[in-house]
Write a protein that binds this DNA or RNA. Structure first.
Lengths: 198, 198
DNA sequence: ACCTGAACACCGTTCAAGT
DNA sequence: ACCTGAACACCGTTCAAGT
């Protein structure tokens, strides 16, 4: 039986989890599939395309954000923005943490702006539904995205060092830093959204 | 005359500015210096060390942040935290923008936690001087750092695409997104610092 | 002290040719 | 349709040997 896209993707995730992003090469992936390097280029145009699929696989287990459906004039919206923002940020971080170097992979993929992947747009939609201007919501969404990804790259980098017996108090410190950073965003959003509503 | 560290560093910055981060290889750098690849390893232990020096060169032109010197009990501090935060963030972004792919280089170097480079610590010191708890100040400093670097990586990625004639309205949009994101941080910090002042 | 020469163990990608 | 074989143009790093 011939190779499938899903098989290649599965082995890519396996190499990522076992050996890390630096060891996820096309040649190593081919070896793990018992195939010549060139064979991979039948299923994926290039490494970038493969990595985009890997990033999508990392992010796709997240639940969709709950965008309020109420119209703008009916007073306070049916779903609160604050838990939505917190759930989105925590869910994103957990998805990134669920694979070794997940944050680094997703960061490298988002850097090339794939049309299929726009996590910032998800949370920007929520903010717009709460009467925030489109440009402001987009800016807030991207700032939140940069924070979550930057933080998690950091966190996973620390985890990689912890294998060499540095410490694991680093883990709880990272978690607290994430919570504090998220609180800062929520506080800032609160000034705009709770204060002058609409 | 023999090669000096400064010469190597200077040529590395020149390659970065002309050809970008992806083309900054040890072999290309050696060729540009008229020397064999192995010669570089007399002056720098490895590529990581060289890149750290490049990142330091990118960040060092920034002015030091102005940490207030007043003691904690004398009421409001002599220097305001808000302009300090804004100046630090804008100065960081400008330093990153001053070299092609500067944000990407600095991001890759900060990922390995060099002891000599801690931009988040600079602004955390300011917040602590304004009676913010150490852990909170550290978290805020890192969140700000992740935002500025993430944003600028994005901005420079767009600039690279703009060479292929996409648009340059992207430039002003990026600038406005940066301003809006920074405003969000300042608003969040204001809830903590202006409200219950130390 | 500082560099060359030459190797080692890798990369991503292409493409004629096979089946 | 799908893969092999083999090449092309690269990487970072090491290290004996030269000067």
């Amino acid at each position: 039986m011939s190779l499938s896209r899903e098989q290649v993707l599965g082995h890519a995730l396996a190499i990522l989890d076992q050996y890390g992003f630096a060891d996820l090469s096309m040649r190593r992936l081919a070896t793990s599939l018992g195939v010549q390097p060139g064979a991979l280029y039948w299923h994926f145009a290039n490494k970038q395309t493969l990595l985009t699929a890997v990033a999508e696989a990392i992010l796709s287990p997240r639940p969709p954000v709950c965008v309020p459906t109420g119209s703008a004039g009916t007073g306070s919206a049916p779903t609160a923005w604050e838990p939505a923002v917190r759930t989105w940020a925590c869910g994103l971080r957990e998805a990134l943490l669920s694979h070794r170097d997940g944050a680094e992979v997703v960061a490298s993929v988002l850097a090339v702006r794939p049309a299929t992947l726009d996590p910032a747009g998800e949370i920007a939609a929520v903010l717009m539904a709460h009467a925030m201007a489109a440009a402001q919501a987009r800016a807030a969404g991207m700032a939140l995205l940069h924070f979550v990804i930057g933080h998690t790259v950091d966190e996973q980098g620390n985890a990689a060092m912890a294998e060499f017996g540095v410490a694991q108090a680093v883990d709880t410190e990272a978690q607290e830093r994430f919570a504090a950073g998220l609180d800062l965003f929520v506080a800032g959003l609160g000034v705009r959204l709770s204060g002058g509503g609409g």
